[in-house]
Amino acid sequence: MTQGPRFWRSIDQRYNLEGVKCGNCGQAIFPARTLCPTCRHLSVGKLAPFQMSGAGTVESFTVVHSPPNGFELQAPYVMAIVKLAEGPKLTAQIVDVDNADMRVGMPVHKVFRRINQDGEGGVIHYGYKFSARPVRGQGAKGQAPMPVEGPRGSHRSPGAPGRLG
């Protein structure tokens, strides 16, 4: 269900949290859109790639006990709506946290992880999750993004998602 070119097309966004910035009104947009929702036609040709820092806070969350296909081995896992420091909001898993410690408003930062797999031996999808582990040297309120960690050497080769085995 999650296979196919439409996921490869958005690989920079999924891997690196790359959005766009509207050259007309200045707002950061994630994921990238064809038009800025504020400026619409005035934004045509003015949406430039923009790297989100990866810092954010939890707006709300849940612990998923009934997972969809490809997530069975991860359940129960935390899903959250994260508000990025730059403004956009997104839906992602929260990791490095005891489920019972989840709180609205807690700071999190982007990490690069395996998202799911299309069946046994199927395509593995990678992308962002958010970690609740405090960033070292920044105290509990760390806002700086963690360095991206991922499958070695593979995360910049769109079109060739890894296979198990």
């Binding site: 709300s60 899903m79 609205v104 998202i115 992308g127």
Partner: peptide, 19 residues
């Protein structure tokens, strides 16, 4: 692409509203 891909289910969205 931006909710379900990451593991969000239909109940999970309502659960986040409830929370």
């Amino acid at each position: 692409e931006w909710e379900a891909f990451f593991g969000a289910t239909y109940p999970s969205l309502w659960a986040m509203m409830a929370q």
